[in-house]
Nucleic acid binder design. Structure first.
Lengths: 342, 342
DNA sequence: TATAAATATGTAACCGTTTGCATTAATGCT
DNA sequence: AGCATTAATGCAAACGGTTACATATTTATA
């Protein structure tokens, strides 16, 4: 590869002039600049980015900590991030952490080793806000999608509690009294927030919360399937199942249909996320839509803003959600009159 | 951040000794080494990776050109890549190219600008094998999943033609005579190879190929849905539909069920890829399973091998596929006897 | 036209490592 | 003990840019 020195020699100027022709064109005379430009073209010179990054101390890279890329919701978020990052001249380093704090820590260390300028975390567990080895104590980081209330860094999220309550209310309005909830991973704040919203709506409707209607999941198809089988075996079968994400709901639908029950006539199913498959199941899934791409865009914009000193506070941005009513939810069996009343 | 100089000063040695203590421990005496180690611990020293990469000329990063991360098959491939890359000390830079050659070129340029050591391409269109600006002419690159027969670089793929023929044969064996094919994107070699396999099987069964049974798609749910609607409107409705990927198949199933037809009683559906949702549709989808994670692993191992000079040739590795028979395919209407005969 | 101000360019230090070569210390051999 | 050999360490250059500062050149001002 041609270096800046080759260009300088060919153009008959110093390396400083070549550098300036690129960085601050107004500081070099038009004629020499054009000589430099043509020398650049002739040599095919392209600045060695490692040298640039090393010298400037800025990598223009961001580490993204994602539990798994094999999740359609995260995939959309990442797409949004890529777009925004490209626009602002940043590169994304994807860290598939599998939710493993050790792997997370390893990736986050890339900031300390000058391989990245900042970190975006798509899950809430954040041991990196305080860096034990440095006095400063803060790592440039933003939290997206899943956030702890106590998070000290900028966050972009959605009111999961409100959203879950909205969906639960939708089911209650259809006369469902016993609504099962298939939760996400135990450790996730999402799981807790959505559970809280579910409880809020129940309380508001004066329906007693029954812990026996709570089922464990982990946001996968398989977990949804298994949980639904347990639900079907319940002595007093619920008339509706609210799943904390769409994969879970689609897995649950499978188990329910296998058992010979009809959705939503026998049992209603609701999801969360509105992944592409939600509109293409049988029946199409009622769910909560999240602006996934915008999550990603907002997250990188926020991070780049803190990196460039444009913002100093730690804003919390709340994205909107939308209840998408399709055909997997309907009136509770024997409660058609209630539906009419709506 | 502490630098190597700080460590050297604290340990009372030269920077060279510190560097050697880490790079070639056997070249420094045990006592000084331990002094260095403790100095490293005291200072919390971590080598500045930008300096290392700059100095060594090796970035230990690989660019992955992926049309879209929002595709479950690619997501699995990427997971496999991450795993192998981490194992071999490499970092992945993900380039969401949207299939845009210009964006691809931009990402591929990262090798020339020393931001990455090599490129992995998940689609076949490869304008980068020849680098016009350098005499050498070759960019360290491997092709995965989708490959051109003429590809000059190492490739890892699957015999798509064979696989498609296998699936088509499966349908033929169930007595289907008119089998529609919903294709992938026009430009993709995958599309053509799978089409060729479909034709091979037809020919072998002495069934005349009917171009009217070919439908355009683009590997999305929506395209599958639309194509299926066209298929249903066909004057002589086919009794089976072979979709070039699972998303297409799932989209098609939706349209077919909406039309009030039963799968597989009225019409059989087959997919390709075996994404997680394939087992969770209604009915579960018959498809071709590909070892996606292994694709990714093999691709990065191949690339790292060429980068480290372990291989000089350009091997073509063919991964195995498997026909997964679920319940979306069955005997053609009025051909139960044929099924018996199997 | 002399002088100040502004503009253009060059010189060289610097970023944090790695590594070839020189130097010094330790060990082995006769 | 004296010399050759090997091991341990230090010195300083190099990687390819950027940029503060110095210098040279042009333009403006009186």
């Amino acid at each position: 590869m041609a270096t800046i020195r080759d260009v300088a020699d060919l153009a008959g100027v110093s390396v400083a002039t070549v550098s300036r022709s690129l960085q601050q064109p107004e500081r070099v005379s038009p004629k020499t600049r054009s000589r430099v430009i043509s020398a650049i073209e002739q040599t095919g010179y392209q600045p060695n980015q490692m040298a640039v990054k090393f010298r400037s101390g800025k990598t223009h890279s961001l580490v993204v900590l994602v539990p798994t890329v094999a999740n359609l919701f995260f995939a959309r978020v990442i797409s949004g991030m890529q777009e925004a990052a490209a626009q602002r001249g940043y590169t994304l380093l994807l860290g598939n952490t599998l939710g493993n704090p050790q792997i997370e820590a390893e990736y986050a260390r890339m900031v300390q080793t000058a391989q990245a300028d900042g970190v975006i975390q798509l899950r809430a567990f954040n041991p990196f806000v305080t860096d034990p080895s440095s006095g400063s104590g803060l790592l440039p980081m933003v939290n997206a999608c899943e956030v702890l209330e106590t998070s000290l860094c900028p966050t972009v999220t959605l009111d999961n509690r409100q959203a879950a309550a909205t969906m639960t209310r939708h089911l209650l309005e259809h006369g469902h009294q016993r609504i099962a909830l298939i939760k996400g991973p135990q450790a996730s704040p999402l799981t807790q927030e959505r559970l809280a919203g579910y409880q809020d709506a129940l309380k508001q409707a004066n329906i007693e919360f029954d812990p026996a209607l709570l089922f464990d999941g982990d946001f996968t198809l398989h977990a949804g399937y298994e949980a639904a089988r347990q639900i079907l075996a319940h002595p007093q079968r619920p008339s509706a199942v609210f799943c904390e994400n769409d994969e879970t709901a689609i897995g649950a639908m499978q188990a329910i249909k296998e058992a010979g029950l009809k959705i939503p006539e026998d049992i209603s199913i609701a999801g969360f996320d509105d992944i592409s498959f939600a509109a293409f199941c049988d029946p199409p899934l009622t769910t909560i839509a999240q602006p996934a791409e915008e999550f990603g865009q907002t997250a990188v914009n926020l991070l780049v803003d803190v990196l460039t000193g444009k913002i100093s506070k730690a804003p919390k941005v709340i994205m909107p959600f939308e209840l998408i009513i399709r055909h997997s939810t309907g009136p509770a069996p024997g409660a058609a009159h209630l539906n009419q009343a709506m």
